[in-house]
Simulated assay, not measured.
Amino acid sequence: MSEFKALVVSEEDGKYVSKVTTRHVDDLPAGEVLIRVKYSSLNFKDALSASGNKGVTKSFPHTPGIDAAGVVEASAVPEINVGDEVIVTGYDLGMNTSGGYGQYIRVPAAWVLKRPEGLSLRDSMLLGTAGLTAALCIDKLEQAGLAPDQGPVLVTGATGGVGSIAVSMLAGLGYEVAASTGKALQADFLRKLGASQIVDRTALEAGKEKPMLKEQWAGAVDTVGGDILFNVVKSLRYGASVVTCGLTAGTQFQGSVLPFILRNVNLLGVDSVEQPLVVKASMWDRLSVQWKTDLHALEHEVGLDDLPAEIERILGGKMVGRVVVRLD
């Protein structure tokens, strides 16, 4: 099959428009592995790419999709065979390399991970980059000394992809989870995921002018950035850590050194895009076995034709949980 369907973003009259159209396999970029994509997922970075954000995607027309799961159709390397079920997340996929919103992708072998036995292709995309990021965050907090008996762990942006998975995973691991959101109507949803406390986002926005805030959190997963992130830093318990992985509330904050030198706290960063494949494989193994959790309460499945509307929803801050994209 040389033709396939893909969501293509093009610039028309100064606006970026997403349409499902026909593409040709021969037009895909060079790479050792050709994959028939079965599932993808929707992430905030995909929406940025689809809206013409040049910090994500430099040239158009373009097919977004930073996640893909499917079956190998052709391979030029011996360790990856035709018929293998595989996952690709991050690296340049969906940014400047044609991504998972097409029924075929061609990528370097160094990006390709064989599907863990404990996950189906569909379930791997229910997790996707969001699940991988949540796992990396929790792993980093535990490496810094976090344990379930130390007190509540805060998750900001808790209704989003990374946040909702982090809430579910932390609760499953025995942590007391406080979930922060600006969507008051989603409190029951967060409690079903395992949150024992709901924190209104406005409570985390207060006090940004103060150098220190009351100690509350034994640890935190921050998915929003901005002044909320540094307010979390200022309210960590002595010796605690916050790991940050998002920027929906901004890339900058007003801060001081006082929390670090008076409370001995840590601000840790997580990147899921350029992690070595061996690190990603380790996290996917955990997600498929030790950290496996039922995420089906999070899911909303759509096809390619539904994606433009879903992209508008996530850009408008209206998405809750995870959107799985069906390519067939």
Results as ranks from 00 to 15, higher is better:
190 L>E: 06
80 I>C: 11
210 K>H: 11
41 S>F: 02
274 E>S: 13
305 D>T: 09
151 G>S: 06
152 P>W: 01
186 Q>A: 15
149 D>F: 08
215 E>R: 08
280 K>V: 11
302 V>M: 05
150 Q>L: 09
84 D>L: 01
289 V>F: 10
192 K>L: 06
83 G>N: 15
56 V>S: 02
105 I>G: 04
254 Q>S: 15
216 Q>L: 14
283 M>K: 08
273 V>R: 15
276 P>T: 13
38 K>Q: 12
263 R>G: 03
105 I>R: 05
323 V>T: 15
303 G>E: 11
122 R>K: 15
197 Q>K: 15
264 N>A: 14
139 D>L: 01
91 Y>K: 15
219 G>C: 04
219 G>I: 01
245 C>D: 04
112 V>Y: 00
235 S>Q: 06
271 D>T: 11
252 Q>G: 13
43 N>H: 15
42 L>D: 00
273 V>N: 13
106 R>P: 05
273 V>Y: 13
221 V>W: 01
155 V>R: 05
288 S>H: 11
203 A>F: 03
127 L>P: 02
35 I>A: 02
75 S>N: 09
301 E>K: 14
314 I>P: 00
316 G>R: 08
12 E>F: 08
271 D>R: 12
312 E>Y: 07
237 R>I: 03
79 E>D: 14
179 A>L: 04
174 G>T: 10
116 P>L: 08
120 S>E: 07
107 V>F: 05
235 S>V: 09
90 G>V: 09
138 I>V: 14
55 G>L: 14
325 V>G: 07
153 V>Y: 00
184 A>I: 11
209 E>G: 12
167 V>C: 11
229 L>V: 10
82 V>D: 08
250 G>H: 05
206 A>R: 14
199 V>Y: 04
84 D>Y: 09
257 V>Y: 04
139 D>P: 07
324 V>K: 03
175 Y>L: 06
71 V>S: 13
202 T>S: 08
215 E>G: 02
271 D>Y: 08
214 K>C: 07
36 R>I: 05
47 A>V: 04
246 G>V: 12
325 V>E: 02
234 K>N: 05
281 A>Q: 14
22 T>M: 06
141 L>M: 11
287 L>Q: 05
149 D>L: 09
131 G>W: 01
165 I>V: 15
282 S>K: 11
144 A>G: 08
45 K>M: 07
10 S>Y: 11
319 M>Q: 12
257 V>T: 10
263 R>T: 02
15 K>D: 10
227 D>R: 09
53 N>G: 10
165 I>D: 03
94 G>F: 03
283 M>E: 05
105 I>N: 04
111 W>F: 07
56 V>N: 00
105 I>D: 02
50 A>F: 05
67 D>N: 08
79 E>V: 07
30 A>P: 02
97 T>D: 03
304 L>C: 11
106 R>W: 12
84 D>Q: 12
174 G>H: 13
197 Q>L: 11
75 S>W: 05
153 V>K: 01
224 V>D: 00
124 S>P: 03
